[in-house]
Computed example of a mutant assay.
Amino acid sequence: MDGRPHLIVLRGNSASGKTTIAAALQRALGRGTANIGQDHFRRVVLREHDTPGADNIGLIAHTIRYCTGRSYNVIAEGIFVADHYRDMLREVIAEHPGPTHVFYLDVPLEETVRRHMARPLGTELPVDKLREWYVPSDTLGVPGEVVLDGAADLATTVQSIRDVIGPVPTRPAAAGARFR
């Protein structure tokens, strides 16, 4: 096993299952895995709209670099619309010294609408907006990018990702650290 931290990029349209998969994958990989969610940085930390050149793009890139530089495995998850995030993602992927894995959840529009209506945000965000934002087959086109069809259940999808990435190193705990 390569002892360098892994970078895992998980992308897809709204309501494709990215956040749920990333959380389950983080739990499966254990401590020492950072989960960097685009929505948290964009919507919560900065309260930004998703626009080209927005500040969250640089903040996410910096956070990925920081975490991998501190030997964390990183899951970067989000819609990461290729038109807005392609350059940043390609840059962090190219400079990452450890194993890198890129996944795109290719979930059909009607399935994302169904999933959207079942979540709390479904009452706040109109379906018309979700349809407007939907970008079919929005892959990055980077070598090794894996397209997942989104039809599998959570456990199967997480296992499929783990099969592709293989074993990941654990990050040593800081001296005197206590986890709760």
Results as ranks from 00 to 15, higher is better:
residue 74 V to F: 09
residue 164 V to C: 10
residue 52 P to Q: 01
residue 71 S to D: 15
residue 3 G to I: 12
residue 101 H to I: 03
residue 85 Y to C: 07
residue 101 H to G: 01
residue 64 I to S: 04
residue 16 S to L: 13
residue 116 H to A: 03
residue 88 M to Y: 05
residue 166 G to F: 11
residue 1 M to F: 10
residue 174 A to T: 07
residue 121 L to F: 11
residue 40 H to N: 08
residue 135 V to E: 00
residue 68 T to N: 09
residue 50 D to M: 06
residue 79 I to F: 06
residue 60 I to S: 04
residue 62 H to A: 13
residue 81 V to W: 09
residue 129 K to M: 12
residue 170 T to E: 12
residue 180 R to C: 11
residue 157 T to K: 01
residue 121 L to Q: 15
residue 68 T to D: 10
residue 37 G to A: 15
residue 78 G to T: 07
residue 169 P to M: 14
residue 20 T to K: 01
residue 14 S to V: 10
residue 123 T to R: 13
residue 35 N to H: 15
residue 35 N to K: 06
residue 171 R to Q: 08
residue 101 H to T: 00
residue 113 V to Q: 03
residue 103 F to K: 00
residue 159 Q to D: 12
residue 119 R to M: 13
residue 75 I to A: 03
residue 66 Y to K: 08
residue 160 S to I: 05
residue 72 Y to I: 01
residue 3 G to N: 15
residue 120 P to M: 08
residue 10 L to M: 10
residue 33 T to F: 04
residue 77 E to G: 04
residue 175 A to Q: 12
residue 168 V to K: 03
residue 77 E to F: 05
residue 14 S to Y: 02
residue 77 E to Y: 02
residue 111 E to G: 04
residue 157 T to A: 06
residue 89 L to Q: 02
residue 158 V to H: 00
residue 96 H to V: 15
residue 72 Y to M: 07
residue 128 D to K: 04
residue 53 G to F: 02
residue 107 V to A: 10
residue 160 S to F: 00
residue 79 I to G: 05
residue 156 T to N: 00
residue 63 T to P: 00
residue 103 F to G: 05
residue 133 W to V: 06
residue 135 V to C: 08
residue 131 R to C: 03
residue 137 S to R: 14
residue 31 R to M: 10
residue 111 E to L: 12
residue 152 A to T: 09
residue 18 K to A: 05
residue 176 G to M: 09
residue 96 H to N: 13
residue 8 I to A: 09
residue 162 R to D: 06
residue 56 N to Y: 15
residue 163 D to V: 05
residue 138 D to N: 07
residue 21 I to A: 11
residue 43 R to S: 07
residue 54 A to C: 15
residue 179 F to E: 11
residue 98 G to T: 14
residue 51 T to W: 03
residue 93 I to F: 06
residue 73 N to C: 13
residue 92 V to T: 06
residue 110 E to S: 10
residue 102 V to C: 12
residue 90 R to I: 08
residue 165 I to K: 02
residue 175 A to G: 06
residue 102 V to F: 09
residue 114 R to E: 15
residue 16 S to C: 14
residue 103 F to I: 11
residue 90 R to C: 13
residue 114 R to C: 12
residue 153 D to L: 06
residue 16 S to R: 01
residue 87 D to S: 12
residue 154 L to H: 00
residue 173 A to E: 09
residue 108 P to W: 00
residue 97 P to T: 04
residue 48 E to M: 04
residue 116 H to F: 02
residue 23 A to S: 10
residue 8 I to N: 02
residue 69 G to V: 08
residue 58 G to D: 01
residue 82 A to E: 04
residue 115 R to M: 11
residue 25 L to D: 03
residue 146 V to S: 10
residue 123 T to P: 00
residue 49 H to N: 12
residue 52 P to E: 05
residue 166 G to W: 07
residue 124 E to G: 08
residue 126 P to A: 09
residue 93 I to G: 02
residue 76 A to S: 12
residue 44 V to R: 08
residue 45 V to M: 05
residue 116 H to N: 02
residue 93 I to T: 05
residue 138 D to Q: 02
residue 27 R to F: 03
residue 120 P to I: 05
residue 36 I to F: 08
residue 97 P to H: 06
residue 13 N to S: 13
residue 124 E to M: 10
residue 164 V to Y: 09
residue 9 V to N: 02
residue 167 P to W: 01
residue 4 R to N: 15
residue 43 R to N: 05
residue 179 F to M: 12
residue 66 Y to V: 11
residue 29 L to V: 01
residue 175 A to H: 08
residue 111 E to P: 03
residue 129 K to W: 07
residue 27 R to I: 06
residue 172 P to E: 13
residue 135 V to G: 00
residue 10 L to H: 00
